[in-house]
Design a protein around this nucleic acid. Sequence first.
DNA 1: CTACATGCAAACCGTTTGCACCCTA
DNA 2: TAGGGTGCAAACGGTTTGCATGTAG
Lengths: 148, 148
Amino acid sequence: MASGLNKKNRSELAKAGLRQTIQREQVFDNLKERSTPVTVGDIHKELFGKQIHMDLSTVYRVLEALEKHGLARRIVIENENSAYYEYTGCGHRHYLVCLGCKKIVSIEKCPVKAYEKDLSKKTDFIIEGHSLMLYGYCPECSRKLRKT
Amino acid sequence: MASGLNKKNRSELAKAGLRQTIQREQVFDNLKERSTPVTVGDIHKELFGKQIHMDLSTVYRVLEALEKHGLARRIVIENENSAYYEYTGCGHRHYLVCLGCKKIVSIEKCPVKAYEKDLSKKTDFIIEGHSLMLYGYCPECSRKLRKT
DNA sequence: CTACATGCAAACCGTTTGCACCCTA
DNA sequence: TAGGGTGCAAACGGTTTGCATGTAG
């Protein structure tokens, strides 16, 4: 490993109650660099490209641990058969997914929060959260569609 | 098969451009009876219980065909590792899923429609649809949680 | 009669797990 | 040094596929 343990992550991982290992650090670093959700395989592959070799199952276990300790969030994307993860530090987000090129655009504004309260009152459910994904075609792909 | 081909479904399947078979009819009937989304295995199992034996792969293929022809909709539920389907005739719906007992409650009102227009203007995406799932605890489960 | 649907069995692929060894705290 | 983390390889479970046979149109 090029530089050993990283101070910044050390505090963040430790604060979350996680034992510090090089693998967790590398995965966590990689996750934080991303601006859109990634699959477990994406992270594994990219680390491999950087000569950082670790087992796929370790990446799975690290992401699971990060999620359990609130540092990562698992995202479900329709028609994609693998799980996506994102760093929770980016805040509450929703995504607009292009059905053509699979590009993912993140959306900061959430139209559901107010609705949750209303719904909770009506159903007596305690609402813990929600997932909202929007699907469509990005400007480039819709231009291509028009041509054909 | 007890009663052979069913007139009502015949028109509905045929109108959608699907060849009429006993298997498609049985799966479609079963799907329409449900008030909440079901898994492929659920349908297969229930039909089996009714002495209607067909291969699991057939159920997969039938549901795929129904979806492609607009008669069924595929639903993704977080933390569930299998696909859910529902009859599209029930209209546009959202679901409230209990994290305790996995009960699914359907919601008719959709708070996202208006938001889509606004978002489309801002991003230049052509928005084709969305999925909104809400997660929480139903009254019974939240009562149990309080006790422990 | 022909194209498409089904059954069966095997392949697939993302994910999980058991176990021996390693390393952080 | 103990208890948790990792690598490796094998298992797992939902889903898909190839192929021979059956059947709707």
